[in-house]
Amino acid sequence: RFHPGCYYRDLVTGETRTLPALIAAVTNLDGEITGLQRTWLDPSGQGKAQLTDPRRSLGDLLGNGIWLGRQPDEPVPVMAAGEGFETMASVKVVMPALPVAAATSANHLAGLTFPPGCRRLYIAADADAAGRHGIGRLSQRAGEAGILALVLRPQLGDFNDDLRHLGPAHLAARLSDQLVPEDARLFLPSG
């Protein structure tokens, strides 16, 4: 959700101000809200606010995520997961039928809880050391649970960069080359 004036407090000076923000609910597998993530936005509309920490999360985050396209009572045989909301929302733009989860951080990605019936997990990579650790740990846990984990790699810094700078057709083509063929047919638009 968009909030036009969400409070932001500087943790060093204690100064508070209001800025527009994207607010996303973090939920467990039952669909219960366990936390939230705030991403403060630049008032000019040009991305995130110029703050030391433009994103903050709170609540019970470990194991939970910002879910897009998942109904709590349905099995999820194939899904994608990644660290950030913008990355996963970008994947969702070109694969609207694929359930996705944003874990809010690399550490929380490593501890994401798998939904019932999950057989295949695509992990959207971020190119930093923390991201690689989260991917490695989540892949290991998925394998131990009998879930095939496959890493999706963006062309640029992340999938949001790919979507914004290269466009949806390019992002879809990039993802098509990395998906199991049956998933490409099922989740990517034809043509």
Rank of each mutant, 00 (worst) to 15 (best):
R1C: 00
R1I: 09
F2Q: 08
F2V: 07
H3W: 13
P4H: 07
P4S: 10
G5A: 14
G5W: 04
C6S: 12
C6V: 15
R9W: 05
R9M: 11
R9T: 13
T13Y: 11
G14D: 01
G14R: 02
L22I: 14
I23P: 05
A24I: 03
V26M: 06
T27A: 14
N28V: 05
L29V: 00
L29S: 10
D30Y: 07
G31P: 05
E32Y: 13
E32T: 15
I33H: 10
I33P: 12
I33S: 12
T34V: 06
L36P: 01
D42C: 12
D42V: 05
D42I: 11
P43G: 11
G47R: 01
Q50E: 13
Q50T: 13
T52H: 12
T52L: 14
D53C: 15
R55T: 08
L58M: 14
G59K: 00
L61Y: 08
G63F: 10
N64R: 09
W67A: 04
L68P: 08
L68R: 14
G69R: 04
R70T: 01
R70M: 12
R70W: 02
P75L: 09
P77T: 06
V78P: 06
V78S: 09
V78C: 14
V78N: 01
M79D: 07
A80W: 00
A81G: 10
E86P: 13
T87P: 00
A89R: 08
A89S: 13
V91N: 12
K92C: 15
V93D: 08
V94I: 10
V94Q: 03
A97T: 09
P99G: 02
P99W: 03
P99V: 01
V100I: 05
V100T: 07
A101M: 14
A102Y: 04
A102L: 05
A102Q: 08
A103K: 00
S105N: 04
L109T: 01
P116M: 06
G117Y: 02
R120F: 06
L121E: 03
Y122D: 04
Y122H: 02
I123W: 06
I123E: 04
I123H: 07
A127P: 14
A129M: 13
A129F: 06
G131F: 00
G136E: 09
R137K: 03
Q140N: 12
A145Q: 07
G146R: 04
A149V: 01
A149E: 02
A149Y: 05
V151Y: 12
V151G: 08
L152R: 09
R153D: 14
P154F: 03
Q155M: 14
L156M: 11
G157Y: 11
G157S: 12
F159L: 01
N160I: 06
D161A: 11
D161M: 04
L163F: 03
H165M: 12
L166E: 11
P168R: 07
A169W: 01
H170C: 13
L171T: 08
A172K: 04
A172G: 05
A172S: 05
A172Q: 06
A173V: 00
S176T: 10
D177P: 14
L179I: 03
E182N: 05
A184V: 08
A184W: 01
A184K: 02
R185S: 14
L186C: 15
F187W: 08
P189D: 14
S190H: 13
